[in-house]
Design a protein around this nucleic acid. Structure first.
Ligand code: FES
Ligand code: FES
Lengths: 133, 133
DNA sequence: TTTAAATGATACCATTAAGGTGTCATTTGT
DNA sequence: ACAAATGACACCTTAATGGTATCATTTAAA
């Protein structure tokens, strides 16, 4: 089924770790050392988080990233949307040129219902809630 | 998110169509004509359904497939399992060599919960229920 | 009895997405 | 000056998905 990609997973781990260290700055190198995640990949992930306003970045020596949003405001649903596209997709189950059956498609309704349930649940999960374990 | 693959989608459409035609035999060629699905791909799908006991096959001229199970017994959850692997996976979110964090993984619990909800829902969806529309 | 139409089995191919690496420019504290 | 960091991209590799093709075998019907 695979609801998550590594991108999202890494982002969550990084954010949790950074929340623990805050307000200290954390660099990609730090994360590689502490969480054993591949650094170059992390960098892409962190940059994405920065562009989306989750993180602030500081260049130069002793640079790195810091959390901007409070952990209660960072929703798993949004991270998934960021790294994997919207949880619930458009009209057709198979995006692109929506297939003819769109009106009669028997599966559409059911799948959309499940997506909605999942989305509701995912919106309730935040970095904060994940840290309470 | 993509809960379905084409395999599963095609299977559902084929099964619904065959239920309508039953007890007539339906060939891959028929499905290509009536549902506009790619024939060679359908054949693979139909063979899989046959091997799993959903369909009976008849070789030779005028051959084809017929439904074996009653439509109320054909669950979407099982079709997904057949074509896409089990809905809910093993211990680790990323199968293969389960990652170290298995004990501490904060996401595991949440995701498994969602999978369970989805699975419950999918078990309630049958070919019969899909036809009532 | 020949032939056409069907499945069984399997191998192959093409496209895409995921996961990951590498490079170069720029910034900045020491 | 220099090392350490991000910004911005361009790659690369692998696996899964979606789809095609081939050959053998079976069977109804002309
Ligand atoms: S698959 Fe496109 S709407 Fe049914
Ligand atoms: S990702 Fe493997 S269990 Fe958390």
């Amino acid at each position: 089924m695979n609801l998550l990609t590594r991108n999202t997973d890494y982002a969550v781990r990084a954010l949790i770790h950074m929340a623990g260290k805050a307000p200290e700055r954390v660099s990609a190198r730090d994360l590689e050392r502490d969480l054993e995640l591949p650094r170059p990949f992390m960098r892409k992930t962190l940059q994405a988080l920065q562009k989306s306003g989750y993180l602030a970045s500081a260049k130069g020596k002793n640079g790195g990233f810091t959390l901007v949003l409070p952990v209660e405001k960072i929703r798993l649903a949004d991270l998934i949307a960021l790294f994997q596209g919207p949880v619930s997709m458009g009209d057709c189950l198979f995006r692109k040129k929506l297939c003819e059956c769109v009106k009669t498609c028997p599966l559409r309704r059911e799948i959309k219902q499940i997506e909605a349930m999942a989305l509701a649940h995912l919106r309730g999960v935040t970095i904060a809630s994940l840290m309470k374990r």
